[in-house]
Write a protein that binds this DNA or RNA. Sequence first.
DNA 1: TACTTTTCACCTAGGTGCGAAGAT
DNA 2: ATCTTCGCACCTAGGTGAAAAGTA
Lengths: 221, 221
Amino acid sequence: RRMFPTIRVSFSGVDPEAKYIVLMDIVPVDNKRYRYAYHRSSWLVAGKADPPLPARLYVHPDSPFTGEQLLKQMVSFEKVKLTNNELDQHGHIILNSMHKYQPRVHIIKKKDHTASLLNLKKIFPETVFTAVTAYQNQLITKLKIDSNPFAKGFRDSSRLTDIERESVESLIQKHSYARSPIRTYGGEDDLGDDSQATQSRGSAFTTSDNLSLSSWVSSST
Amino acid sequence: RRMFPTIRVSFSGVDPEAKYIVLMDIVPVDNKRYRYAYHRSSWLVAGKADPPLPARLYVHPDSPFTGEQLLKQMVSFEKVKLTNNELDQHGHIILNSMHKYQPRVHIIKKKDHTASLLNLKKIFPETVFTAVTAYQNQLITKLKIDSNPFAKGFRDSSRLTDIERESVESLIQKHSYARSPIRTYGGEDDLGDDSQATQSRGSAFTTSDNLSLSSWVSSST
DNA sequence: TACTTTTCACCTAGGTGCGAAGAT
DNA sequence: ATCTTCGCACCTAGGTGAAAAGTA
């Protein structure tokens, strides 16, 4: 199923004349499996991670972009789909349920006349999420029903109250602090703030194939 | 509204390594206005054409294609939209109702390192059609209801009978013979059969903006 | 009379969480 | 007990011709 909320990114500092490929992948945050403690409303470590799944890239369907396009428009990843089916034939990104993940946005400059590439990578830490097949927390469910147009059918006056919005913020804080501190699992290099990807909006709730992964994360800014 | 049936084209003889832009435009077949003679089931000339409308190109949204893609996949123009509103802001192709038109498919090879272009043009005469805001013939209506999935709601056992199918063929013959013989109005050069566009499927019924243009044409293999 | 415009019921296509049923 | 799967009602989004109303 689709990843929701949608990750949207805008770019600066690109060459308007050059061509760029923009893509997303999603990497494990740590080597742990999680379970949800209802009475504490928080995620607890529940052992080592399950075996890693085939890594897949989501190349943005509007690629290649001209630098000019990237400076003008926001790039939206609304069509990214997630699954927990390791045999998936649809090209969706494959995740383990009950594991913590970090989406990453990559931008690759197409060098003319050669095959060489420049690949920049950008992480928005506020988009870390935990994949699930069923929502573990009623507030998250409510938040998603509130914000996803396709879930309008479930809005029975259950729009989030101000108090609930505060609770959501606190949940997000907890989820954020609970993850391992700095390094992305997998040991690949991140970009600093000089990266070309400068803005994100929305974040990475999720979903899967026939089932329904989810999680939570900030909707910073 | 969308042009239906959809024009689909496949290509041969292209360079798999090169990049190509594929596009469609629709040009007047002659300088005449038509009206429909119900009792004779045929189009009659009804005077000189109305003033020409702004010419527009429909660049296929999957452009640019690699030659490799063109050799593999059929290119479908299902999303082409037509209108009779000369002030249209949506980029749709603008046509005069009750006039006869010829869709054309163009393929442009992008030359590396230069701005120069090679533009080839291909006409499928069986896709000539007359634009309308309301269908003029019950058989055409039935044919479209029969073949367009979005019109399924109007299929009340009214599927075309074998006899009706024959009548449709004869209508198409009549429409075809009625148009001016060889030259496309506007005097631009056509390609011969050595063109790179080698196959069409379906044809050019139509439709417009808030209204409903239509017409008929062959569905030659 | 001969079109053109507008609105609408009825479709296709596909994104939601729900809840019963299944799996371990 | 704790997830995962599946079918479903309910949405969004938008493509149909019918038919009533408008235009000239």
